[in-house]
Simulated assay, not measured.
Amino acid sequence: MSRTHTQVWLQADPASSSGHEHRLEVLFQNVQYLCMPFVLRGLSLRRATAEQAARLGELHGLESDPRWDLYLLSRSDDWFVVSATPIWAEAKLSYRDEPVFWSYSGREDVVVSIGTLE
């Protein structure tokens, strides 16, 4: 298998019916495996428990590797990403603006908050 991209960038549209005024972005780097639909509604990001990771790993034929964690993306579906620790940001941006991580890093007038999922 050959890969050319190992990053997944997700963004939530602030104009949706969610009621949030800022855009939320999540960047997964060193992605090893991805299981999700093209459009994800209702992102609920959290690190999987050891039991959840073992179950999903067995179901998808994944080998455990201490360098990566399995991150769940939904409360109701088994959608997930296996990657390094994701980075998230909340910003004063519209859906069509450039990503925070490449275009607005360090811009306090745009970035409301930024962090990692630990």
Rank of each mutant, 00 (worst) to 15 (best):
H5C: 09
L24K: 08
L43G: 03
E90T: 07
W88D: 02
R46P: 03
A54C: 13
A89F: 10
G57L: 06
L117T: 00
R23E: 01
L117N: 01
S64N: 12
S64K: 15
D13A: 06
D97Y: 11
S17V: 05
L10Y: 12
G57K: 08
D69L: 03
C35T: 10
V81S: 00
F101I: 04
R75P: 00
L62Q: 11
D13S: 07
R96T: 05
N30H: 14
D69Q: 14
V8S: 04
Y71T: 01
Q32F: 08
V26H: 03
L40K: 15
H60M: 11
Q32A: 13
L117M: 05
L70F: 05
T6G: 11
K92D: 07
S17W: 04
D65M: 07
L117V: 05
C35H: 14
S18H: 09
F80Y: 05
W88C: 01
L24F: 13
W102C: 06
N30E: 10
A50H: 06
S76Q: 14
G19N: 11
D13R: 07
L62V: 04
P99N: 08
W88S: 00
E21F: 11
C35G: 05
L34Q: 13
G42S: 10
R55N: 09
L43R: 05
A53F: 00
V8W: 05
I87Q: 10
L117P: 00
R47C: 03
A84G: 12
F38M: 12
L43T: 01
S2L: 14
V82Q: 12
W102V: 07
H20E: 15
P86Y: 01
R23A: 03
T85I: 10
M1V: 08
Y104P: 02
A91W: 15
E58R: 15
L34R: 13
S113F: 10
R41G: 05
R47E: 08
C35S: 13
T49V: 09
I87V: 08
F80D: 00
L56S: 06
V100C: 02
L34M: 12
E63M: 10
S103N: 11
D78R: 04
T49I: 10
G61M: 09
G57T: 02
S76L: 15
S74W: 02
N30Y: 12
H20T: 07
R23H: 05
W9L: 15
T116A: 04
S76V: 15
T4V: 10
E58L: 15
Y33F: 09
L117F: 13
V31S: 05
W79V: 05
E21G: 03
